[in-house]
């Protein structure tokens, strides 16, 4: 006997993500999902970004980390509302799923927030697959990772709405070809906006921060 099913395996996550999306819309908060491989500079970029945005743009951060509180402490120092998710208790997961985001978001005063940033688990594969109800996805690639990363992890660069090429302060010391990296991103995702910056020296930060401000303003 054959039973026809035709059901998406991640349907449970997708409907949870839709529920989150409704909640975020109702509260008028713009939600950005930030993803990258471990150590590309998500936390550092966010810290410097928050210094420029706060307090005009009331920002909250949900940070996923497998077992430490380091990132949450660094982010809290900027004055943002920070909630840490240690995925450890859920089996050391490799991505933040929609139900974890709901659980954290409900502990925050969303009404008071204009912007909610989710720093996902450092991983270029799995987070790309899991919708969390965000308005936009950002991927961070750093110049120490190799120009071919977009071709090796096409889904991540395909689903991203914008990309950041971070640590450009290191370019003089590396063989990394920034133009080739950007070119590879655009091969995988034609038209992808790419912000080249250094979270350390803050060179190139402003266009990215302006994009965020703009996105928040559009959300109204």
């Amino acid at each position: 006997m054959e039973i026809n099913i035709q059901k998406r395996v991640l349907e449970a996550n997708e409907s949870m993500a839709d529920k989150n999306r409704r909640l975020f819309r109702e509260k008028g908060v713009f939600v950005l999902n930030m993803m990258s491989s471990p150590g590309s500079g998500k936390t550092e970029t966010l810290c410097k970004t928050l210094q420029r945005l706060m307090p005009e743009v009331a920002t909250g951060v949900i940070v996923g980390d497998i077992c430490t509180r380091n990132d949450a402490d660094r982010l809290e120092a900027t004055g943002a509302a920070v909630v840490q998710i240690n995925t450890d208790e859920f089996g050391g997961d490799c991505h933040l799923a929609a139900h974890l985001i709901e659980k954290s978001a409900l502990t925050m005063d969303l009404e008071a927030l204009d912007l909610l940033i989710v720093e996902n688990i450092g991983n270029l594969v799995c987070p790309a697959e899991f919708d969390i109800g965000e308005n936009a996805k950002a991927v961070v690639l750093s110049v120490t990772e190799g120009e071919d990363k977009p071709l090796k992890y096409p889904l991540m660069f395909q689903v991203a709405d914008i990309a950041i090429l971070n640590k450009i302060d290191l370019l003089p010391y590396l063989d990394f070809n920034a133009a080739e990296a950007v070119d590879n991103m655009k091969k995988v995702h034609p038209g992808l906006p790419v912000f080249e910056l250094s979270a350390k020296t803050q060179e190139g930060m402003e266009p990215w921060v302006a994009w965020l401000r703009d996105s928040v303003a559009k959300k109204g």
């Binding site: 006997m1 054959e2 039973i3 026809n4 099913i5 035709q6 059901k7 998406r8 395996v9 991640l10 697959e129 889904l155 395909q158 034609p190 038209g191």
Partner: peptide
């Protein structure tokens, strides 16, 4: 060689069907 694109397929992860023993 210019336009933005839309992905039509390739992201599927679906249970299509089951076959049961009689």
């Amino acid at each position: 060689e210019r336009g933005e694109i839309e992905v039509l397929s390739g992201r599927e992860l679906e249970v299509a069907s089951l076959e049961l023993a009689d």
